[in-house]
Design a protein around this nucleic acid. Structure first.
Lengths: 202, 202
DNA sequence: TTATTTTTGTTAACACTGTTAATTAAAATA
DNA sequence: TATTTTAATTAACAGTGTTAACAAAAATAA
């Protein structure tokens, strides 16, 4: 009896409808303002129907997170295959990673829980400038004493800050509790810092 | 007439009360679940009083963001003064940056809009493993061909991913629009990748 | 074909959220 | 003491996620 099959097909079509509607809302209004009611409105079903297909709102977002990681892995895999040298592969994969993030901002923000502070938060926080100045001045000094003193200090500052923020962010994602991360994790910071400084002074 | 002074003093005391109550709530329940009503309840005033001191909820959080950047800048400044060599300073500042982040998680998450995905999101996304494997295998291969083949590949993978995620995150904070970031920004990726790979193969 | 059971979908509510207009209580001034 | 200004409150609006209770539709059994 194909009745059950038809039912399952119908059920699945609603599920897909939910995800498609949700994604449409995400890319037009951002995932911050996604709501169950908006989805229900878009698929022309009542609200509780959505809860027959997803445990809660988070489960819907989790679906996109998975999709995002799938797409990213696929992209990186494609890029890797285009090179033979592992070193080249790593550089190209880094490039592709960057492109993926900015060609799929909503995906990336969901995947890593980036809350994107309001457009001009950075400008409304002059206190940020203190840190920036401190980093830049130190990098300038380090560059001046190194082998390529006319390197782009602003670029290097950006790299320095990004490495630190990246290390912290990834660690916070992997260890969301309130405990301090493993002491061994701090070795990663030391390693990264050593590498950066080394490449700075050449 | 000291009446006006007393009034201003009183007004200021309420403002401080709001911030203290809010911060207490933030460190106990996390900034995600901070609400105006909870603050009003804590300071034993009605809700609209809060809006006489802050334009909206975001303004309260912005206050903490500023505080956070102030504290961080201060910390880094202190650390910098303890060393003479700029290279040493950069390493020590990186160390201090990490410590600050994990000794002041709520501050850091506010400052950079980290949404901290639910505790076990990482484990609920097996798709993440694909990316991890891809990166690790490539790094292993690169290490094998370099001058220190027995380096810690897991550490290096962590560094690689963190650098990329940091570059992307910082860029997204600085350019929150929907446009692609400046092409010149991609130079930063190239530079960082080159530096990393160089330090990888020695 | 009709009656019964199961599935599916809806209405309405609960407990929250940020924000604000209208109103009352309190304090300062005339 | 009466009036004006300031401070604080109540009550509401427009949202949010989530769910219990109920009605409509579809599938099964008689």
């Amino acid at each position: 009896m194909g009745i059950l099959e038809r039912k399952l097909r119908h059920k699945e079509s609603i599920r897909i409808g939910i995800l498609e509607a949700a994604w449409q809302l995400v890319i037009t209004d951002g995932w911050q303002s996604l709501s169950i009611r908006k989805i229900a409105d878009a698929i022309e079903y009542s609200i509780p129907v959505i809860y027959n297909h997803f445990e809660n709102k988070e489960a819907i977002l989790l679906e996109f997170t998975k999709e995002g990681f799938e797409k990213l892995a696929e992209t990186l895999n494609e890029v890797k295959k285009q090179y033979n040298e592992p070193a080249q592969q790593l550089v190209a994969m880094g490039d592709a990673y960057w492109d993926f993030a900015f060609e799929n901002r909503e995906y990336y923000q969901l995947m890593f829980g980036l809350g994107i502070p309001a457009c001009d938060t950075v400008k409304r926080v002059p206190e940020l400038k203190e840190m920036t100045c401190l980093m830049i001045s130190t990098i300038k000094e380090a560059l001046a004493m190194g082998k390529n003193p006319e390197a782009d200090y602003f670029l290097k500052y950006h790299t320095y800050w990004s490495i630190l923020h990246g290390l912290v962010s990834i660690q916070m994602i992997e260890c969301p509790g309130n405990e301090q991360p493993d002491i061994t994790k701090k070795m990663i910071v030391g390693d990264a810092m050593a590498g950066f400084v080394k490449s700075l002074v050449d």
